[in-house]
């Protein structure tokens, strides 16, 4: 696919979509409502179609989560549908993350010998391949090997085979391989030839940082050997290689935190770092995610006719759906309002 892409159209459209997302001010009120009230509320906004389809079978949080999932897939395909040319190429490259996620789900399911229906329930067809494709893969294979063979022809077959040959058929290795392949492909295949591609790569590099930080936090917290950690870090982010390795090579979580505190690499997480020991990683990860989203927002203002407004919308939409799910699930499982407020990502 060639062509510059319909930036004016797509950007105006995503901006209008962005303006129709649930505003920040509505969240305190949503937190005060009950689950069925939230269902009604979202039924009066962008979720009306799904709510009306599933509303008659309403049984509570599950129904809402179904509504949210459907809406997300619809929103993503909608965006892909009106993007053209180079823009579409970039956006679809980004959305292939959902394919990665789905491959991971299928592999895990097969490893666990889960029944196909259960695996399919966990699939979110928001990437390039649709529900039918995944059903075919899930039903048509019984082992991990089968799945890999069935994925022949997709972008990820090569990476999976390479992982198998080099490191053996270990699930976690496959998963790491897939994630790294996703970012590698984006950085390799998209050359910063045009302004749009440059801004896109900039965005992706920021996201790679986010993923790397998450990996660092989790592995350091669990005391994984530095050598192993380094193998899991995705190259190409904005953080320098030396800095990353230095963080990975620290001795234990305490030292890691110490270094992090001193280097001020990420001022956004300063406050949260102090609470990690007591409150878990949620706060830090949230802060990182917020910083990432804020960066996209800022960048999309600087480049109003680029791929960034589209990325920004996708990020925001995903965040909104996550927020709604947190509120609904949290309420259904009896978390108190204050906890829920801490969990959601309101910008």
């Amino acid at each position: 696919m060639t062509g510059r892409g319909n930036y004016a159209y797509a950007c105006a459209r995503v901006k209008a979509k962005r303006a129709m997302l649930i505003p920040k001010e509505a969240y305190p009120r949503l937190l005060a409502m009950d689950v069925s009230g939230i269902m009604r509320f979202i039924g009066e906004s962008q979720y009306s179609q799904e709510t009306q389809e599933l509303g008659i079978k309403y049984t509570g949080a599950e129904t809402i989560e179904l509504v949210l999932g459907k809406n997300l897939a619809k929103a993503h395909h909608g965006v892909l549908g009106f993007c053209k040319g180079e823009l579409k190429e970039l956006v679809s490259a980004y959305m292939r993350w959902w394919d990665v996620r789905n491959i991971k789900t299928v592999l895990r399911g097969k490893r666990y010998n889960a029944i196909p229906e259960d695996i399919l329930k966990a699939i979110v067809p928001a990437g390039e391949y649709d529900e039918k494709y995944w059903a075919g893969i899930v039903r048509g294979s019984s082992t991990i090997e089968d799945v890999i063979e069935n994925l022949k022809g997709t972008e990820y077959y090569g990476a999976l085979v390479k992982t198998r040959e080099k490191l053996g058929g270990d699930l976690s290795r496959y998963e790491n391989g897939l994630e790294m392949e996703y970012y590698r492909r984006i950085l390799d295949s998209i050359k910063p030839a045009t302004n749009a591609k440059r801004t896109f790569i900039d965005f992706m590099r920021d996201e790679i940082d986010l993923v790397n930080f998450r990996t660092l936090f989790m592995t350091k917290f669990d005391g994984v050997e530095p050598k192993k950690i380094i193998g899991m870090l995705i190259p190409g982010g904005k953080m320098g290689k030396e800095d990353l390795h230095a963080l990975a090579n620290t001795d234990g979580f305490g030292q890691f935190m110490e270094l992090l505190r001193n280097t001020a690499a990420y001022p956004a997480i300063k406050d949260e770092i102090s609470q990690v020991e007591s409150a878990g990683l949620n706060g830090v990860i949230r802060a990182l995610e917020k910083a990432h989203a804020a960066a996209v927002e800022r960048m999309s203002r600087l480049h109003p006719l680029s791929v960034l407004p589209v990325m920004n919308y996708i990020t925001r939409k995903e965040a909104e759906i996550e927020n709604l799910r947190i509120i609904v699930r949290g309420k259904a499982s009896g978390l108190d309002t204050e906890r829920i407020r801490e969990l959601i990502m309101v910008m």
Binding site: M33, S36, G43, T51, E53, G55, I56, Y58
Partner: peptide, 25 residues
């Protein structure tokens, strides 16, 4: 702080969601 909805709102909302969905279907 923000007030809490009346107790009846949960069931009212549920019925409303169902009726709207039914109207659509």
């Amino acid at each position: 702080w923000i007030g809490a909805p009346e107790n009846s709102s949960a069931s009212l909302n549920e019925k409303l969601v169902k009726m709207r969905s039914g109207a659509k279907l």
